[in-house]
Simulated scan of single mutants.
Amino acid sequence: MYWTVHLEGGPRRVNHAAVVVGDKIYSFGGYCTGENYRRRRPMDVHVLNTANFRWCALPLPKHYDPHISCVPYQRYGHTAVAYGDKIYIWGGRNDEAACNILFCFDTNTLQWSCPNVSGMVPGARDGHSACIISGCMYVFGGFEEEIDRFSQDVHVLNFRTMHWSYVCTLGEPPSYRDFHSATALGDRMYIFGGRGDQNGPFHSQEEIYCSDIMYLDTITGRWCRPATYGDIPIGRRSHSASLQYRQHVVIISCYNGLYDEHYNDLYRFSPVRNEWQLVKPLGKVPSKRRRQSCLVVGDKVFLFGGTSPYSGQNLHSLEELDDNHGEGLDAKLMDHNDLHILDFRPTLHTLCLLIVINNHLDQRLLSPIVRWEIRAMTTNNSISRPLNNTG
């Protein structure tokens, strides 16, 4: 494994939701320090071309009424899943309220719609998880706005019928939590991490962080807690989880509130052996962070956005700090606009490109295609909004 690309200038977003369709990554919403999240404005959509690493921002509607529009309002803590060529956004909140309306984004027409649904619609929440298994979206956990408590429930939306159901599960479920991860593998939904509370469903500021991994067998409806061994990671929240090409669950970056620590570690879990392994890829590791997005495309992981503690390593310039007017310093966190790529199986060609880049070698005798690849790997994007944008 090798971290091969690090580019700045993408969307500066935290707690956003992203998904892969074809060779493009679609990123929805999120927040950036200094912007206004009380006023309901249309959700922004950013698209990454995974071939040339270029971001673009889709146009926002000119006239927007959140009460009648099928365009979701800007939010954070929501989920995005892909079913065919459509992307479904559910949950999340702004600074005023949470939402439980289902929105659909068509990647062919780039248009939004609000599908008609039936059944038992889950209560509005954020910090939940969602994944696709057998044509259904399984939603677990989160913090429910209306009843002011954490959840440990499972809800399922059947995309063929657009019918919501509450799942009556068997066995002991994962504890009440939010900002965990859910990873689909076959008929199983693997749940890891998240923030819980000593008082179960109630938020009393006495946080707990579980390091167990559990899965729901969606055929039997039974929760299972496998006995694991190896390099078991510390409990965490706001991490990223994805499925590696060799059917491993990969966990990247996180935050633990008990230690008030951010991490940039990488763990791999084998569902076959129930074994954790700490992996240390080569290359420049991304800074410690949380609430980023991380997706697998082929043999590569694309990680972008998130937030980190301020440090000498992630302050890119004194001008950027001045532009922020101290807002990020008050929170002691910096919102990122960067993109990192982890190559699970870098080819000899890719490794040679890295030698040219890292050693600043003369490129004049290289072919135009190779020079184009180097430009793509080294040219920053330029769509970021200023840090002091107030929305």
Rank of each mutant, 00 (worst) to 15 (best):
N15R: 02
V20Q: 00
K24Y: 13
I25Q: 01
R41K: 14
L58V: 08
R75D: 01
A82T: 07
Y83H: 12
D85T: 13
Y88K: 01
W90I: 08
G91Y: 04
R93Y: 01
N94F: 03
E96H: 02
N100R: 13
L102K: 02
C104F: 03
F105Q: 04
G119D: 09
V121N: 04
A124N: 05
H128W: 00
A130Q: 06
C136F: 01
M137F: 07
G142R: 04
G142T: 06
F143N: 06
I147G: 00
D148I: 07
S151H: 01
R160W: 04
T161M: 08
P173G: 05
D178Y: 12
D178S: 13
T183I: 12
T183G: 06
I219D: 07
G221D: 03
A227F: 11
H239N: 05
Y245F: 11
G257T: 06
N264M: 06
P271V: 09
R273L: 15
L278A: 13
K280M: 10
G283D: 03
S287Q: 10
S293Q: 11
K300Y: 01
K300C: 09
N314C: 07
L315I: 15
E327N: 11
K332A: 13
D338L: 10
V356P: 02
R371M: 01
N388V: 02
